[in-house]
């Protein structure tokens, strides 16, 4: 701790092993970006499987996509885009030190996140009721139910892992909101808010890809 004492106005948030706030902030940001790269690779595996099977069983994918509820998907997309906006505004509020605005915006972001999860839950229940969950009880009236089951396997896996990320996001934003309410973040120290923001935007972007891939497959091709 000897050298941190030499820094005249040293920030209480500065950890002992960093020389200064700038180094700490750069390290945190970089760490978050590296983490997001791992996340891209994680989802990438599923996107690859999606691409392969969509190429192999295009007609089945069209049929599966038409069984999706267009409006649930679209409304959820809008909800998430709005949550990204409030998240971006929250990051800005933390940078300029508006504590109340920060807390409010984070809460709104969480509410949007919960709305997304709620709609998703309704949608999942519908699919479950309609035997659109892969396995023994899977049932689909169509020309190629077997490969439509693969579509639904991918649908559940991709949206399921996305929903898990949303859930983690909501919980983390919850923690951040608590600390923001306690006044921990300000112009000098707002790393955690920025990093959670990055994570939140990443999860949104995954959805921005999932939405057209799962809900909006064109069927002109076959016509």
């Amino acid at each position: 701790m000897s050298d941190s004492a030499t820094v005249a106005d040293h920030n209480p948030a500065l950890q002992h092993h960093f020389a200064d706030m700038e180094q700490q902030q750069q390290a945190a940001t970089m760490g978050m970006w590296v983490f997001l790269i791992t996340e891209i690779m994680f989802f990438g595996g599923m996107f690859l499987a999606y691409m392969v099977y969509r190429y192999m069983y295009y007609a089945a994918f069209v049929a599966g996509s038409q069984a999706m509820d267009f409006w649930y998907g679209t409304i959820n997309t809008i909800v998430l885009i709005c949550s990204s906006l409030t998240m971006a505004l929250a990051v800005r509020a933390s940078q300029v030190g508006q504590r109340k605005a920060l807390v409010a915006l984070l809460i709104v972001t969480m509410l949007f996140g919960c709305a997304f999860m709620g709609i998703k839950a309704i949608e999942y229940t519908g699919h479950w009721r309609d035997h659109q969950f892969p396995g023994a009880s899977f049932h689909f009236e169509g020309p190629d139910p077997q490969h439509i089951e693969i579509f639904f396997s991918l649908y559940w896996a991709m949206t399921g892992f996305h929903a898990l990320h949303m859930l983690i996001g909501i919980v983390v934003v919850g923690f951040i909101t608590f600390y923001a309410w306690r006044g921990r973040y300000g112009p000098d120290y707002h790393n955690p808010v920025e990093n959670v923001g990055l994570y939140w935007h990443f999860v949104d972007i995954v959805w921005i890809y999932l939405y057209p891939l799962l809900y909006l497959i064109s069927h002109k091709h076959t016509g």
Partner: peptide, 8 residues
């Protein structure tokens, strides 16, 4: 695949 019989 093992738990829920996904067919990927």
């Amino acid at each position: 695949e093992r738990l829920f019989h996904f067919g990927i």
